[in-house]
Design a protein around this nucleic acid. Structure first.
Lengths: 341, 341
DNA sequence: TTGAAAGCGCTAACAG
DNA sequence: CTGTTAGCGCTTTCAA
C-alpha cells in the first residue's frame, strides 16, 4: 500500500481550518491558540505528516541547510572535521550538504555552484591544493551567501577563516628536533602554493634560521600531501645517497609514505632517520614506532567555523569577516623524542 | 554589490519569449529550435544564471538527490564507503545528502524522516548497532522511496541489501588461525543483535566446530565495535589470568583496542597473543606488527548499492528487491602468520 | 516550435 | 486568534 504524502491542506480540510493555521500551529507560532495547536499536532501525528522541506525552503527563502566542500573524505584530518560539522549542524537544526572536490579545482567550482543552486544558507570550505582562481568565491558573496574557509584557505583578505597556526606549529616541531641535536634536517613540504604548505615551510625556515642551521635545498622537497609523495621523496633521497637525519613532513600521510619507504629499504626509525609530522591522528600511537606530531585541534577548527558561519547567517548585513588562528600542540611519541649526537 | 539571482523569467523577458521556452532550452528539450536554444543559453551564461534547484525539485517532483545514513564518518570503513558513494553519485549527477546517526537509533529515525522530508529520490543506509525497530523502513517504502541497505542491514526479507559474506569471512580467518596451530581462540564479537556481529560470530563457531575445537564461553565476548571494547575485553581476560592464544576481532577498531591493551601490559604480539580482525584498512600495514585481516571490498559494496538504487529509482513499479553478498579475502600481514605449537 | 494555464506545498504579510 | 491573498521559481500538461 503506497500512499502519497499528506500535506498541510489535507490536515486543514479535515480540521476545517486554513492551511495557514495548520502551518503556524505545526511551527508553534504564537498566533495560534493552544487548543488549535494541539488539535493540529495530534492529527498531523496520526496522519504521519512530514513537512515538505523543499516547498518550505522555496517559500521561506531559507533552506536551513549548510553546504560543505572538502577535498577528501577518507582522510584522518577531514573526516574528523566533517564529523564535528555534522554534530554541530544537527544541534542547530541545520542539515549539512557535503560535497567532495577530490582535490580538483574544477570540481570544487562545480560543487560550489550546485550548493548555491541548492540555496544553502551558508558554506564551509577547505579548498583544494590546486585552487588558484578565486572568482567563484566572489560569486558566492555576490549571492549573499556567507562562506567561511577552514584550514586550507585562499590568499585573500576580508574573508572568514579559521586556520591552524601552521607557521608556529612547524616552528615548534623543527625547533624540537634541533634541540635534540639534529642538524641535517629535511622538510617534505607538500605544495607551497597553498597556505598550509607555504606557512609550514616558513615555520621550518624560521626554526632553521633561528638556530643558525643551513637549509639544504635538496632536502626541501615539494610535491604533495599524500603517501606517494612521502614515499617517492624519501626514495629519491636514498637513491642519491643523500639522506638527512631528520624529516619534518607537512602532513601525516606524507609521514606514512616515509614509513613505507623506510620499511621497504630495511632502515629503522628513529635510528637511521627520525621524523615528525604536522597533523595528529590517534592511529599514530600504534605505528612502529609511534609517530610524534604537531596536533591540530580539529574539533576547535570546526566549532569556530560553524560559529562564525551562524553569526554571519543571522547577521547578513553588518557582519565583519573574522579570522581565527588556532594554536597547536607538540605531541611527543616514539619519534623525535631522543637526543641525537 | 550584492545581487539577487537571475531567474528564468528574467531571461524570458529580455529575450521576449516565455519562461517555458527558456526552461526547455536550458534543459536541451527537443521542443525548442536550435537557434532559440543557443540564444537562451548564451544569455543565461552572460547573466550567470543558476537554476534554483529547490524550485525545480518542487515542481518536478524529484530532487536528484540521494540520502545516505551511516553510523559514523571518521571511521576507516565508513569513510571509504562514503567516498565511493560520493564519486558514483557525482557521475550520475546526483547530489548526496549524508547524515550521521552516531550509532543512535533515535537519531537514525530522525534523519530518515528528514531525508523523506527533503524528498530524496532514494536512500542508502547502514543501520546503527542498536537499531531493532524496523517500522521506519516501512514508512520509507510506503512513501515509495527506494532504499538499499549496506553492510549493516536489518533482519528483514524482501529488501535491497548489499552485504559482505561475514560468516564466510569469519570462517576463513579462524580457520587460518587453527591451521597455524592455535587452539585457545577467542572472539571479540561486537554486538550480535546486528547482522555483522551475528554472522561473524557464526563464522567463528563454524570454524571451531569444523576443526573440533571447544569454544570457551569466557572467550566469546560481546560489547561493541570500537576500540574501548577491545581494550576492556582484553584487560578483563588479563586480569582473570585467562588469556587466549589468539583473538579474532569483529572489527579493526576492536583490534586496535587490543593492541593498546597489549602494549600497556608490556605484552607482545604475536608472541604472547596473536590476532586477526574483520575489516581492512591500509593503515594496518603500518601497525606494530602489521595486522592481518579479512578484507571487505568497500568500493564494491558501494558500487553495488548505488547500482541497485538507481535501478530501483528508474523502475519504481516492477522492481524486485535484490540481495547481494560480496566475497572476502584473507590478507596476511604480520599477525596470524606464523605457526604456533 | 512556442506559450498559456495551472500547480508543486508551503509561508509571509496583512486584514479581519 | 484565524484566514485571505499572493507568490517563491520552476515544470508539466495541453492548446495554438
Amino acid at each position: 500500500m503506497k500512499s502519497k504524502p499528506v500535506t498541510l491542506s489535507d490536515i486543514a480540510k479535515i480540521l476545517n481550518v486554513s492551511t495557514v493555521t495548520v502551518s503556524k500551529a505545526l511551527r508553534n507560532h504564537p498566533d495560534i491558540s493552544p487548543e488549535t495547536t494541539k488539535k493540529v499536532k495530534k492529527l498531523a501525528e496520526e496522519l504521519e505528516y512530514t513537512p515538505n522541506l523543499i516547498a518550505r525552503s522555496l517559500s521561506a527563502r531559507r533552506s536551513n541547510t549548510i553546504g560543505v566542500v572538502v577535498p577528501k573524505i577518507a582522510h584522518f584530518f577531514f573526516s574528523s572535521i566533517i564529523e564535528t560539522i555534522y554534530k554541530i549542524g544537527m544541534e542547530h537544526n541545520y542539515e549539512i550538504i557535503l560535497t567532495v572536490s577530490q582535490e580538483n579545482a574544477e570540481l570544487e567550482r562545480k560543487h560550489i555552484n550546485t550548493l548555491l543552486a541548492m540555496k544553502v544558507d551558508g558554506i564551509i570550505i577547505s579548498i583544494t591544493q590546486q585552487t588558484n582562481k578565486y572568482d567563484i568565491f566572489e560569486t558566492v558573496s555576490k549571492r549573499n551567501v556567507p562562506i567561511v574557509f577552514i584550514d586550507r584557505v585562499p590568499f585573500l583578505d576580508n574573508i572568514n577563516s579559521v586556520t591552524i597556526d601552521d607557521r608556529g606549529g612547524a616552528f615548534k616541531a623543527v625547533e624540537h628536533a634541533i634541540k635534540l641535536g639534529y642538524k641535517k634536517i629535511a622538510h617534505f613540504a607538500g605544495y607551497t602554493n597553498i597556505n598550509i604548505g607555504k606557512e609550514r615551510l616558513q615555520g621550518f625556515k624560521d626554526a632553521m634560521e633561528k638556530y643558525g642551521l643551513e637549509i639544504n635545498p635538496d632536502w626541501v622537497i615539494e610535491g604533495g600531501f599524500g603517501e606517494e609523495f612521502g614515499y617517492n621523496a624519501f626514495m629519491k633521497l636514498y637513491e642519491n645517497k643523500n639522506l638527512p637525519e631528520f624529516i619534518f613532513t607537512v602532513t601525516f600521510p606524507v609521514a606514512l609514505g616515509v614509513y613505507s619507504a623506510v620499511k621497504e629499504l630495511g632502515l629503522r626509525i628513529p635510528d637511521d632517520v627520525d621524523l615528525i609530522c604536522f597533523g595528529n591522528a590517534k592511529i599514530q600511537e600504534f605505528l612502529c614506532p609511534p609517530l610524534s606530531c604537531i596536533d591540530q585541534p580539529t574539533t576547535l577548527l570546526s566549532q569556530h567555523a560553524m560559529e562564525i558561519l551562524f553569526e554571519n547567517i543571522n547577521n547578513q548585513d553588518e557582519f565583519k569577516p573574522k579570522q581565527i588562528i588556532i594554536d597547536t600542540n607538540l605531541i611527543l611519541r616514539g619519534t623525535c623524542n631522543r637526543s641525537h649526537n
